[in-house]
Amino acid sequence: MTNPVHYITVTAPDGEVTGYAWAGVGVDDVEWITRNASSVSAYNASTQWYDRVREARDRGLTPLGVLNLLSHEPGVGPVMEAADAAVVEELARIVTPADDQRLLDQLDRDDAEAWRGLGDAFDALTDEDRDVRWGGGQKSPSGAIHVPFPMYSQGVDRAVDALRRVGAVTPEHRWMDNPVPTPSPEGTLRPADAVRAATAVVRGEKFCDGTIDKALKSGLLDAVVASLRAWYAEPAAALPAGPTTAGARTEVPEARRLPDQDLPEPPDPSSPMCRFCGGSPAADVAFRAHRGLVVLMGFRRTDGPMCLTCGLAVYRALTTHTLAWGWWSPLSLFVFAPLTLVRNALAVRKVKRLPAPGPGTLGPRYDPGVPVRRRPRAYIALVPVLWVLFMIVTGLSGGV
């Protein structure tokens, strides 16, 4: 059994996909996933998009409302439907030819001396260089055990530095977010994967001692250098294709665009959208509620663009609240409750002049319910008033 999801694709101005926002059916949240192979600039842009997704969600929109709202932004694709979240995760793992080329562009082809140094350094590695010795591990007199660490030879250090000099170690590959490429059974790597592997190994050594040692013993570094040297000698030469990063596909057939009847039409940009449902036209209004609590008072305000339907719902709810609880202090009785009712009556006139709203794009539309005069809560304040009048009439009658 699958759990269908909806998602949007976000691209940078140059067309590079930065990530995907998606929401599952029946799940009350929107997730953001960054494309693993994206550039540094696209990755930085994706963090801003994550914030925009959270801001839209904080407005109280439904998950599909968030996706539909953002789908009208420049560089964002239409809302699509997929069988489950795994499809979106697979999309985020796609590696494109442009991703490969971006990594190859980091290599400094013009520095012939650096490339000679790379070949010389690896050709000069001896068996002793490759048999890395480890220090530490002994117990001190205090009982503490020193953490083991690799002691690389000058030859290994020279070889690693040569990889940096030719540009094979680059921040354009986010190695923590991607698996380390492995050579083919023939021991070859594609040039772009050689850059990925070099970056992962050299930078990974700072976080995990022995990463370079492991790459030397497994033959990964030899495959990296062989691929880079072949590319430098003949960049157009086709090497046997080795495994690339996981999910290097160009399409996911399980994804489909939602039909037009599943999504409302985008709102007219010249007309404000209702803050609650996304319908238009809408009027910028403010409705208030007041509550008197003998010596304390409470105030509430709801403002922003509202369509006819949602505006009537807010007006009726806040006005009914004021009629029920807005009289229970002296200032409330003579000042704040009447003022609140008058301001609401003026504001609702703007809403009532609006035509019926178009389809909502952000979420469910509020139900206005019955008019205020047909709501029993609006007459709660009459109970004590009638009781006082009854007592007055009774007193006067008794005194006659």
Rank of each mutant, 00 (worst) to 15 (best):
A347D: 08
K350P: 00
Y315A: 10
E90L: 14
P357E: 02
T211I: 02
S270C: 01
G24I: 04
L258R: 13
R288M: 04
S46Q: 02
M306T: 12
S280A: 15
A92Y: 07
L293S: 09
S271T: 09
D28L: 12
P74R: 06
Y20Q: 05
E55A: 15
L107K: 05
R256L: 05
R133P: 01
A324C: 09
F390E: 07
L104I: 08
G210M: 06
I94D: 12
T322K: 04
T320C: 07
L118W: 05
W387H: 02
E73P: 04
V17R: 09
G358L: 03
S46A: 15
P371I: 03
L296H: 08
T320A: 14
D129C: 01
P384R: 08
S153N: 05
V393K: 05
A317R: 15
R365T: 15
A159G: 12
R288F: 12
V160C: 10
S140Q: 13
R257S: 10
P4F: 07
A223C: 03
L91E: 05
K214A: 14
D268F: 01
A223G: 06
T250R: 09
A83P: 01
R158H: 10
P141W: 12
A114Q: 04
D262E: 14
V370P: 10
R109D: 12
Y366Q: 13
S140D: 14
